[in-house]
Design a protein around this nucleic acid. Structure first.
Length: 271
DNA sequence: CGAATCTCCTGGAGGC
DNA sequence: TGCCTCCAGGAGATTC
């Protein structure tokens, strides 16, 4: 399940494609979250890739004539191949470049997306509504505290709302709250400015830790063999139901919040 | 405006 | 070995 760090590591792995020109596009299965636009082969033919950016969990591939949005959903991965290997079952989309490199999207569950955003990607409806990047200065305690003031939802649900802040998925929401010693069920509006400071710091630290762990495994990440390269992080609470808390040894709890599994330590994260 | 629920999809795990 | 059920989850759409 690619979270923001994995998406950023993926983006960095695509850098060898910069300044390469598209030879052709192959759409094997357009049935992603939204249909892959049928015009892409014509639109991108002979277009040079000028930039690779990330916004939230979207990768923005800037071509001469516009920007392609890529989203990995929860089971998507992008493989950078040095030639056109035979596609496998869930290889839905390729960009083949003139120098022989192939960018291949594999996504068994097809929650991902490939979309054409044209010349003004920042104004695309999917990007326009997004909150600040968690690792940038716009996401700070004052901002968070102000946004939470009117929200009665649980804090864990709130920080997973991409309109509030992007890139905090289910894993890192639980992890950040544990590290900030904040109970996931506390109504968001009850957080003090002090708690917001701690939470912001821990969200940034948690994401940075994952980013650093992923940066070192880039080579494996982009193997042509398609082996998983997602770095396995040591989690404090995620997926550790019943196991001892790494701080106090009490068993980790699992509850449902907003239809999502939520992990925490009853002892370390008081209400 | 906020909040709760529904939805897309398939692989993997567990039960029998 | 096979079949069934359940679960995972990003985030937009829908409804209240």
């Amino acid at each position: 399940m690619p979270e923001l760090p994995e998406v950023e590591v993926t983006r960095r792995g695509l850098v060898p494609l910069l300044n390469q020109t598209v030879k052709n596009i192959v759409i094997r299965n357009a049935g992603m979250r939204w249909p892959i636009p049928a015009h892409l082969p014509q639109t991108l033919h002979n277009q040079k890739l000028l930039g690779l950016r990330r916004r939230a969990k979207y990768i923005l591939a800037d071509f001469e004539n516009g920007t392609l949005l890529l989203h990995l959903g929860m089971s998507g991965r992008l493989c950078l191949l040095d030639r056109n290997y035979p596609p496998e079952k869930h290889d839905h989309f390729d960009i083949q470049f003139h120098d022989g490199q192939v960018l291949r999207l594999r996504d068994p569950r097809r929650f991902g997306a490939v979309l054409w955003a044209g010349g003004k990607p920042d104004e695309h409806p999917l990007l326009r509504v997004l909150g600040p990047e968690p690792l940038e200065d716009g996401f700070n305690a004052k901002y968070l505290h102000g946004e939470l003031r009117t929200r009665s939802a649980a804090i864990k649900v709130a920080i997973m709302d991409s309109h509030l802040v992007v890139g905090v998925g289910n894993i890192y929401a639980s992890e950040s709250l544990f590290r900030a010693r904040i109970h996931p069920e506390i109504p968001a509006k009850q957080l003090t400015l002090k708690q917001c400071e701690k939470l912001v710091a821990e969200i940034k630290a948690t994401l940075n830790d994952a980013l650093n762990a992923g940066g070192s495994s880039l080579r494996d990440f982009f193997g042509a063999d398609g082996n998983p390269g997602y770095f396995q992080q040591e989690y404090f609470v995620y997926g550790r139901t019943g196991e001892p808390c790494k701080v106090c040894s009490k068993p980790i709890q699992c509850i449902r919040l907003g239809q999502r599994s939520t992990f925490f330590c009853r002892h370390c994260q008081k209400r």
